[in-house]
Amino acid sequence: MIDFGYTLSKSGTLKIENLDDSRFKALHKLEPDAYKCINCGSCTASCSAGVFTELSLRKILLSLQRGDEKDYINQLQSCMLCGKCMLVCPRGINTRHLILSISKIYNTVDR
């Protein structure tokens, strides 16, 4: 390899060519609001379960958008479905149904 005097570092977050978004598309079909999130974090800030656990709906959605479902999704197990996130979301996302739909498609039972 020719030495140009510098190297290209590996992409840290996303390999677009490896992205498998079929599940996310399925999720979008079940709950069209899935694409609406702007990762503002209001949901996480107001989360009832977030007081006790690491649950962050923002992180979960972000990781799912990136086709990376392993890291955060098990956090959903602590959600109380209270709906606070739905009330604070500036995008009016139906978060409760989104959470249920994520569980349905990504199966959060045995994680």
Partner: peptide, 15 residues
């Protein structure tokens, strides 16, 4: 209805 949502609230023990 099934959702595959394995809700676990054992974290509440410390509350």
């Amino acid at each position: 209805a099934t959702y595959n949502v394995g809700l676990k609230y054992d974290y509440l023990d410390s509350y």
